[in-house]
Amino acid sequence: MEYAVLVDPAKCIGCRACQVACKRWNNRKGESTTFNSEWTNPPKLSFNTYTHIKFKLEYNQAADETKWRFFNWRCMHCKEPACMHACPVNAITKYEQGPVVVDTNRCIGCKFCISACPFGIPQFDTVTEKVDKCTMCYDRVAHTNEPKEPACVQSCPTDALLFGPRDTILQKAMERKEELNGYVYGDIDNKPLGGTSFIYVLDTEPSAFGLPVVGEQLPTSVPVLKYSKFLLIPAAIGGLLYLISWRKRRMKEKEE
């Protein structure tokens, strides 16, 4: 069965439980960070930070109204993951339950996935020289009997992250969309790379949250990368033809 997670920033209180729970389950190191006045810290995803909370503060001077948005950010776990298609060593697997996982034993650190991902998710580690990213806790989720929710979802106090069968989650997303008069990102309103396993329900435009516009198809660079090796075929044919003609010419020369 396919599962999904509903991300509901309107319910998020920015406590970063997900950020820490993720590090705990996945045994990730704490990073050495510096003061960040925005509070998003670690400021970027990394090999050791699969997920973090982004903080966005908006202030309307005239109305003296403050909006402070927090939202969980990590791999979207696309249906057709660009990273997977870009990987030259098949180190990335899409599980039928939803998770897209990098097998770091197979990873060779070529960074093709980094360049392919339209969300900027996979992260290269300079110590191990490998790439890693959120696994959607595939070791908890990808079981035919009773999957266990990902660590981030389990830890969320306000159900701003909700795990369940994809159909149920989509239904919930529709309900919340109506309540918020908002927008669903990841499915329904748009389907980045065929639809994602983490689905956002937003009270406003995705751009307000800094979410990129991603088409349903793989970004052009991925098939180009993937199919470029077929240039070897015309090259081989061309080379063969060239050699044949060259040999003919030589034979002729010899005869002469």
Binding site: K111, S115, L225, S228, K229, L232, A235
Partner: peptide, 18 residues
Amino acid sequence: APAIHVVITYIWIAFSII
């Protein structure tokens, strides 16, 4: 960069043979 790197390599191979 990685995509360009790979694609250019193949183009170059094809180019240099043809």
